[in-house]
C-alpha cells in the first residue's frame, strides 16, 4: 500500500507540473524544452529554504513556486518579447535548461553536482493531492478566463489573434509564468518526496517527458495530461520494465502519438463526471 501510495505521489507531482505546461503548450501553443529548469529552481529553493534557513514547508512551497515563476521571466521576457519563431523559442528554452543545470552543478549553495540529501519528507499523499486539486482549479479558471481565451486564440493563429488586438507578448508571458510556478511547486514537492535532489535529475530528458505527458494527454486538455501522468507513472511500474526501456518506449510513443494520433488521449475534451456533450473537432495536424 505504501508502495502504491509512493507511485501515486510521484504521479501527482508530475501531473502538477504537466498541468502547468498544458496551459503553456496545450493552450498557448508554445513548446518548451526547458521546464525541468523551473522544477529545479523550485526544488532547490524549497530545499535551501527548509534545510539551510529552517523555513516551514508550507511557507517554502509557495516561495518555491514564486522563485521558479520569477526565473521564467529571465528567459521569457527577452525571448517572448523578440517574438521569436516558435522553434527558435524552443531552442532557447533548451539552452536555458542546460545552462541552468550546469550552473546548479557549480554553485556552492546548491552543493554542486553532489546535490542535497537529508531533506524531510513533507510531500505526503494528502498534501500532494491538495496541491494538485488546487493547481487544476487555478488552471481551469485561467483557461476559461479572458486570458485563457486570448491564449487559445494565439495558439490557433498568432497572426489573426494579433490582428484582433491581442498582445502576443503579455499573454504568452503570463502563460509561461503560470506554467513555471506549477513546475516549481512540482519540483519542490519532488524534493521533499524523494528527499534528495541533484542537478542531473533535471535534464532535458525530464523536460521532454513533461512535454510528452502533455502531448499524450492531449494538447488542449487539462485533465488529459493528468491522466497521462498517472498512466506514465503506473503502467511501467506495474509491468516492471527497466528504466532504460521505459525511456525507449516514451520516445517511440511520442513519435507514434504525433504521427498517428496528434490529438492525444483526450484531444480537446476533459475528463468529467458529466456526460460528454458530443465529439468536438480534433486539433488539426
Amino acid at each position: 500500500m505504501t508502495y502504491l501510495k509512493g507511485i501515486a505521489i510521484l504521479a501527482m507531482i508530475n501531473a502538477i507540473s504537466a498541468v502547468g505546461l498544458a496551459v503553456f503548450t496545450g493552450f498557448t501553443g508554445m513548446m518548451s524544452l526547458g521546464h525541468a529548469a523551473f522544477m529545479a529552481v523550485g526544488a532547490y529553493t524549497c530545499a535551501i529554504a527548509t534545510k539551510t534557513f529552517g523555513l516551514p514547508f508550507l511557507l517554502a512551497l509557495p516561495l518555491a513556486g514564486l522563485v521558479a515563476g520569477l526565473s521564467s521571466l529571465l528567459i521569457g521576457i527577452p525571448t517572448l518579447r523578440a517574438n521569436l519563431r516558435s522553434d527558435y523559442f524552443t531552442i532557447a528554452t533548451l539552452g536555458f535548461g542546460e545552462a541552468m543545470r550546469v550552473l546548479l552543478e557549480n554553485l556552492t549553495i546548491t552543493n554542486g553536482a553532489r546535490g542535497m540529501a537529508g531533506l524531510k519528507n513533507h510531500s505526503t499523499f494528502g498534501v500532494t493531492l491538495a496541491v494538485l486539486v488546487l493547481v487544476i482549479f487555478f488552471a481551469k479558471n485561467f483557461v476559461f478566463s479572458r486570458y485563457g481565451r486570448m491564449a487559445i486564440a494565439i495558439r490557433e493563429d498568432p497572426v489573426a489573434a494579433e490582428l484582433s488586438g491581442i498582445g502576443l507578448f503579455p499573454v504568452r508571458l503570463r502563460s509561461m509564468f503560470f506554467s513555471a510556478v506549477c513546475a516549481g511547486i512540482g519540483g519542490a514537492l519532488m524534493a521533499h518526496h524523494i528527499r534528495f535532489i541533484q542537478p542531473s535529475m533535471f535534464t532535458g530528458v525530464q523536460s521532454t517527458l513533461l512535454t510528452a505527458t502533455v502531448v499524450a494527454g492531449g494538447m488542449g486538455s487539462l485533465t488529459g495530461p493528468v491522466l497521462a501522468a498517472f498512466l506514465f507513472a503506473f503502467v511501467p511500474e506495474l509491468l516492471r520494465v527497466a528504466d532504460m526501456w521505459r525511456l525507449v518506449a516514451y520516445g517511440a510513443l511520442l513519435v507514434a502519438i504525433i504521427v498517428l494520433r496528434p490529438q492525444g488521449l483526450m484531444g480537446y475534451r476533459e475528463l468529467s463526471l458529466r456526460r460528454p456533450s458530443g465529439r468536438r473537432r480534433a486539433p488539426n495536424g
Binding site: 513548446m31 502531448v215 526501456w245 520516445g251 517511440a252 511520442l254 504525433i258 504521427v259
Partner: peptide
C-alpha cells in the same frame, strides 16, 4: 512546426535510450 519538434525529440530519446 511544434509537431515536428516533438517528433524529433521523441526520436532522439528513443535512439539514445
Amino acid at each position: 512546426p511544434l509537431y515536428f519538434m516533438i517528433s524529433a525529440m521523441g526520436t532522439s530519446i528513443f535512439l539514445e535510450n
